[in-house]
């Protein structure tokens, strides 16, 4: 009998923005299940939405039928999310939030991700694509993120 980790959820979706609402629903419920407040749960949901939006726009450049793997780890001390794409690699050094004083369309997604999550890390070491790891600790003291 196969044993599956009871704290792990794995989803694979096509890179179609119609699935964003579906993923948001799952993430919100996971965060609430972990007893994050409603506000923080909604914030985490926004961070994941923004990460997926960036994958669709930048890694897959709008292609609707590419694969995105989302793994959610519901751990004792944190909610950890891995978003894996197999598209164009993006140099993490070039991924920067925009200056909020410079009001223009675009550039807010990365700002939200970094503002909301305790850790945001891009791994481009695999042969194809990028794996983004985002972590939100249950007690957001700031100390755990270092």
């Amino acid at each position: 009998m196969t044993i599956y980790d009871e704290n792990t959820i794995l989803m694979s979706i096509a890179s179609h923005p119609k699935y964003l609402k579906l993923v948001r629903s799952v993430i919100l419920q996971c965060a609430m299940l972990m007893n994050f407040s409603e506000k923080i749960s909604k914030d985490i949901t926004l961070a994941v939405d923004e990460a997926l939006t960036n994958v669709i726009k930048h890694s897959y450049m709008g292609c609707l039928n590419k694969r995105i793997d989302i793994t959610i780890y519901l751990l004792d001390d944190r909610l950890e999310l891995k978003i894996c794409d197999f598209g164009k690699k993006v140099d993490p050094k070039t991924i920067k939030p925009r200056n909020l004083c410079d009001v223009k369309p675009g550039g807010l997604g990365v700002f939200f991700m970094k503002k909301i999550m305790d850790e945001v890390d891009y791994d481009i070491s695999s042969p194809k694509g990028t794996t983004l790891t985002m972590i939100k600790y249950k007690e957001d003291t700031g100390e755990q993120s270092n």
Binding site: L46, E50, T53, K104, P105, G106, L108, F111
Partner: peptide, 10 residues
């Protein structure tokens, strides 16, 4: 989300 905000800013 930021796509909606970008639309409004535009």
């Amino acid at each position: 989300d930021s796509s909606g905000l970008a639309t409004l800013i535009e």
